[in-house]
């Protein structure tokens, strides 16, 4: 697999590493990292920085007996921590909902559900009409490719959209396009479905 050409801004990677990204957005970044050695290396550097930042802090003593408590816990089994890489099929998606021919959406609930995380499937050759965005939106292409004014976005590529940006993606003729998208929740639920209808029909 070729490495991606479109990457998150360093500020986004820094937010990811510091823990400031909300989970839906962090997940889309993680999906990009899965196929991007370049950004994985950047993340490691930022994590090293995080380690140095922790070491630089003035220590705050723990209360008496804490260390003995910890020592006593060493032989107990801890809670299971899942150790796996992020892959799209690990995300708890809901059922696939049909939007239009060849076009569907699968929503996932992550975190407190304050943001939307979903898989959007677009058919080969799909043209959308120009559309803007509500708040910030992160996309990682999982399969296929689309082209818009910013270039061609293929598997692994990351795209950040914000309020003022309009684009008109055009899916490659070669095959369908599958995107993992995180976006801030619109004020009213139905406006999003309305937006998809708008993207296709222009209404």
């Amino acid at each position: 697999m070729t490495t991606p050409n479109h990457h998150p801004a360093p500020a986004v990677l820094s937010d990811y590493v510091s823990g400031a990204l909300r989970p839906a957005f962090a997940t889309v970044v993680a999906a990009h990292l899965e196929s991007c050695p370049h950004c994985r290396a950047a993340v490691q550097t930022l994590e090293a920085l995080g380690g140095a930042m922790i070491e630089d802090l003035a220590p705050v003593s723990l209360s008496e007996g804490r260390i003995e408590q910890a020592m006593a816990a060493l032989d107990q089994a801890g809670p299971e921590v899942e150790a796996h890489a992020v892959t799209a099929d690990r995300i708890p998606f809901g059922p696939e909902r049909w939007l239009a021919p060849g076009m569907s959406i699968r929503k996932a609930k992550v975190g407190n559900g304050e943001d939307l995380l979903y898989l959007l499937r677009l058919p080969a050759g799909q043209k959308t009409v120009p559309h803007g965005h509500v708040g910030t939106e992160f996309t990682t292409v999982l399969k296929g490719a689309y082209v818009d004014g910013e270039g061609r976005f293929a598997a692994g590529d990351f795209c950040e959209m914000s309020n003022d940006i309009e684009h008109q993606p055009h899916v490659d003729r070669g095959g369908e396009c599958l995107c993992l998208i995180a976006s801030e929740k619109p004020m009213r639920q139905f406006t999003r479905l309305g937006r998809f209808v708008h993207m296709i029909t222009g209404v």
């Binding site: 590493v17 823990g19 990204l21 989970p23 962090a26 997940t27 970044v29 993680a30 990292l33 899965e34 994985r40 993340v43 490691q44 994590e47 921590v81 899942e82 150790a83 796996h84 890489a85 992020v86 690990r90 995300i91 992550v110 975190g111 407190n112």
Partner: peptide, 20 residues
């Protein structure tokens, strides 16, 4: 993140922390 936001971060960070 898990404790303060009452969220499981495993999904969004497994890659960088516990890459097996």
């Amino acid at each position: 993140i898990d404790a303060l936001r009452r969220e499981r971060s495993a999904m969004s960070y497994a890659l960088s922390v516990l890459e097996p």
